[in-house]
Amino acid sequence: MNIFRLAGDMTHLASVLVLLLKIHTIKSCAGVSLRTQELYAIVFATRYLDIFTSFVSVYNTFMKLVFLGSSFSIVWYMRYHKAVHRTYDREQDTFRHWFLVLPCLVLALLIHEKFTFLEVLWTFSLYLEAVAILPQLVLLQRTRNIDNLTGQYIFLLGGYRGLYILNWIYRYFTEPHFVHWITWIAGLVQTLLYADFFYYYFLRFIGGRGVE
């Protein structure tokens, strides 16, 4: 574990907590894409299949449970909790996210490190996570103005993988044989997709107003 990866995990955790805070306390998911949340639930479900078979550390297992539990409960809240569901913007959140799942699965079947069930699904989760934010970014452009909590959520979610890139650079230079092109390229694409969001976020953040 290095400071970049710890910062990345904490940033990821913070993004999830900000979203849960917004949904649980003010019972609102305005501006949040249910489709992105559904994709993230699939990402964690296919990435953490080894949670029962390979133990890395208490921290690792605990964080996996947190991400699994939070992503599924956020989907549950947005789908079935009547107060929260009412604030869900169904008409605007129309990105065909299932069209993202199949290409990622095909790509994982073609490009992976090992051709095993767990490894292919794990690779699939990497590809899917790289594009999972697209429905949210599209919704963001349609709803124009979003509240600060949603803006913070997206900022933290985009930032965590950027910190992971620093972690991979650090590990590449400090650990022999630490080369994982698939993870690195997927992580880079994922972070680059946030580029224009970060641009507007900093513009607004510096201006002290909400994110538009």
Partner: peptide, 10 residues
Amino acid sequence: NKNDVTKDEL
């Protein structure tokens, strides 16, 4: 082996 190294990340 190197794959375990990969899987120690979230």
